[in-house]
Amino acid sequence: MLNYALMIAFALVSAAVALSFWRLFRGPDTPDRILALDTLYINTIALLILLGIYLKSALYFEAALLIALMGFVGTVALCKYLLRGDIIE
């Protein structure tokens, strides 16, 4: 039962990663791409957590926590660049 649920979940989250990648390449504007990256890192956390349950290992938690912290900092830095970059021009 749990294995079937995990397989379905892996398929759905992988599809979510694919859709985010599509938006990342398609654009059309910079904020769209930043939003796609933001979604991608959250999807990656989901994948890592699922992998942790599948392999019965708590090791993946640290990786997920680090991705959460760094992903947020990355999004904020990119947005700040967009907001400030124009002021300097």
Partner: peptide, 21 residues
Amino acid sequence: LLSFLIVTGAVFTFIGSLGLA
């Protein structure tokens, strides 16, 4: 309970990205 939570979580993650695309 676990299977329900996992599938619900995955479905919502997927819907979020679907909205993005």
